[in-house]
């Protein structure tokens, strides 16, 4: 079978040690958590880091907890943990719905939230989820911690705001009341990457209009995995079918899908419209306490 090229292996027992190792080994070192994005690339010899720094020992980064008005998710939290988290299920159904269609159950036992975000695959699902929820990531280095909005996190395909000598340690999402959320994905087969996927949350105001809304879109070249104009359009408006359709159409028109064996551009664009509308409609129903 395919095998990785040789590399040096280090193991970090703490975040500080991981940062020290990153600093010592320089830009050709890579952190490895679950490894389910990096190792296949290494086996194809498309990635050949000189040093791998194994951070699976950082159990203190494996948590999902409420901190004030936010939910904090440690970077080493496995996908399976996110899928089954009662805290996340209480606040945001979008997590379980997205996780259920990320890779497969065995991969989810190993893959991590931080690893998925840092891989920054343009078809990655959690990027869309966190973009929809307008999450923040916490990045640490020897200099200390800094917080980056999801909207500024992705710098392009496979590129993020995490710099040399830095490690993503946490993702945060604000807790919102009167909110519903949902995730919609079309894949060619269970476990495949998205042809397109969309997630949303909708928060109602006292007057029954949409007080706040977030839209996340993946696999179709949506800027920062979202569509701000569509969100702006909905904010403050009553959740009518027309408004939803209009917002979905904006999302479809503004993304930049590329053709591949998952589908041609016109189909992907069409799909964005369908999936955004579905995600919004189910979010609205859930915010109202209806089954969806």
């Amino acid at each position: 079978m395919q095998t990785p090229a040789p590399f040096e292996y280090e193991r970090a027992a703490s975040v500080e040690e991981a940062i020290a190792l990153l600093t010592r080994h320089g830009p050709e070192a890579r952190l490895i958590a679950g490894g389910h994005s990096l190792l296949p690339m290494m086996k194809l010899r498309l990635a050949r880091p000189e040093t791998l720094i194994d951070i699976n020992g950082l159990a203190d980064l494996d948590y999902i907890r409420v901190e004030g008005d936010q939910i904090a998710i440690g970077a080493m939290t496995r996908h399976a943990t996110v899928l089954e988290s009662a805290v996340l299920a209480e606040h945001y159904r979008i997590f379980a719905e997205a996780e259920r269609v990320i890779a497969d159950p065995i991969v989810r036992n190993r893959g991590t939230v931080g690893g998925s975000l840092c891989q920054a695959d343009p078809s990655e699902d959690l990027s869309a989820v966190f973009a929809a929820l307008r999450g923040q990531v916490v990045i640490r280095s020897v200099e200390g911690a800094r917080t980056v909005d999801l909207g500024n996190f992705h710098r392009g395909p496979y590129e993020t705001a995490v710099g040399d000598g830095e490690i993503l340690v946490e993702v945060r999402v604000p807790i919102r009341t009167r909110t519903g959320s949902a995730y919609e994905k079309v894949e060619r087969r269970a476990g495949d990457w998205s042809v397109a996927a969309a997630g949303a949350f909708v928060q109602f105001g006292d007057d029954g209009s949409i007080a706040d809304v977030g839209i996340g879109i993946t696999a179709v070249g949506a800027e920062h995995f979202t569509c701000a104009p569509a969100e702006d359009l909905l904010r403050g408006r009553p959740p009518t079918a027309e408004a939803i359709e209009e917002a979905a159409a904006i999302c479809a028109a503004s993304c930049h899908p590329s053709a591949d064996q998952r589908g041609p551009v016109d189909y992907k664009r069409h799909l964005v419209g369908v999936l955004v509308a579905r995600a919004l409609n189910r979010s609205i129903a859930r915010a109202r306490g209806e089954a969806a």
């Binding site: 079978m1 389910h36 194809l44 791998l52 399976a80 159950p105 991969v107 036992n109 190993r110």
Partner: peptide, 29 residues
């Protein structure tokens, strides 16, 4: 083992009680 891309699951073993794909896990881990 049956693939190189962690799709097939032929290599599934338990690591600390949870099934993992051993083709996408380093022995060092």
């Amino acid at each position: 083992w049956g693939c190189d891309t962690s799709n097939c699951g032929a290599c599934t073993v338990w690591l600390d009680g949870a099934p993992v794909k051993s083709c996408t896990t380093l022995a060092a881990m």
